[in-house]
Design a protein around this nucleic acid. Structure first.
Lengths: 192, 192
DNA sequence: GCTTTCTTTTGACCTATGTCAAAAAATGTG
DNA sequence: CACATTTTTTGACATAGGTCAAAAGAAAGC
């Protein structure tokens, strides 16, 4: 999924608007495991993932990494709270594979929001979409067993299981890596 | 906090726009514990809470209620995913106290989004604000102990502890009511 | 193709929190 | 105010999933 098509499919921009908007994005090739944002920094950019898988994560006092979210191709990615509220980020942001991203700064994005009503709409649609995703994950985490959360993840991120280290997925699901390993091993459910 | 002030403080609407926008909202007095939305229904309205506390919750297969979110005075309230995606709601929505709400339908809201660029902006700001709230809760739930989650809640909803039944809060925090009761009882933390 | 490093699996044991049941306290109501 | 209903607390016990340690397997570097 490339950026132009993604934008077009989400909101029907006139082609001059679209061209102007795209011109504010910068293509970036980034290497895997190089942090795009570190904890404590203010996240200044919003990224669109053309190729690669990203994740946001934080590090506990005990020094363990906890994956907060995965971002796959065709999705916008950022340290959300930091980018929108301009607070120091609680999270690191990194790509887990060598990747191609398109980035835009907060200033330029605000400029586009002010310039085009349709851009503002795009922003609204993206936030509500992300919001419903996060709400779904919250439901899964809040009251389901480890096995159910694992099954939930297969629906939200079907192909991620093979592309990402088990430990990253486990912490994303709020369990230890040992537990996830055991779940994968065990019979898929009640059925013998 | 009333609706007019809330809107004004969030986005600087010209006064004619503001008047027009407000005219699409309908004041509703609602009794406590009467569902505004039931599971399976499509949620057609967005509510602004002028007075009262609301919650969204779902019912598990075992018949237990799990509180998803609380909505306090000065906040917009809805079965978010249902309202925005027009899917059948997974949640019930109800007020826990007799309440005064202002409601707007999805159609009228869309009309206002299309009519006023600033309204679209309001929508975007509200979603991102809600998004950061949900992300924060998710972090709290995902990897913290029952006691830490309880402490987190005191910051997000400081006064709710006294206004809402313990069982509702416990399920909101992803624990049983017995556990929450014990936490409240026990010494507040490591300090003797 | 061997060595080093990183990731996943396995095993033994432990603990925070859940479950179930019943008592106590609070709240509502004619 | 007495009775009914709902909410909160307490106790005894069970268990899902955590912790720690080590072995096995994969991947990366030379």
């Amino acid at each position: 999924m490339n950026l132009t098509n993604y934008l077009k499919n989400t909101v029907p921009f006139p082609s001059e608007e679209l061209a102007d908007i795209i011109s504010y994005f910068k293509r970036e090739s980034v290497q895997k495991n190089k942090p795009l944002v570190r904890e404590g920094q203010i996240c200044t950019k919003l990224y669109f993932t053309e190729k690669g898988i990203g994740r946001s994560y934080y590090v506990t006092e005990a020094g363990k990494e906890v994956t907060q979210w995965f971002f796959v191709e065709g999705q916008f990615m950022s340290s959300i709270e930091s980018f929108f509220q301009q607070n120091p980020s609680l999270y690191y942001l990194e790509m887990l594979e060598d990747a191609v991203l398109y980035s835009i700064t907060r200033e330029n994005l605000d400029l586009l929001f002010a310039r085009y009503h349709k851009m503002e709409k795009l922003g609204r649609l993206l936030s509500t979409e992300m919001l419903t995703r996060v709400v779904n994950k919250l439901s899964a985490i809040q009251f389901q067993t480890a096995r159910e959360r694992h099954d939930y993840m297969l629906t939200e991120f079907p192909d991620i299981a093979n592309r990402v280290a088990l430990g990253h997925i486990a912490s994303y699901l709020g369990m230890t890596q040992e537990t996830l390993s055991r779940i994968r091993k065990a019979p898929p459910s009640k059925k013998s």
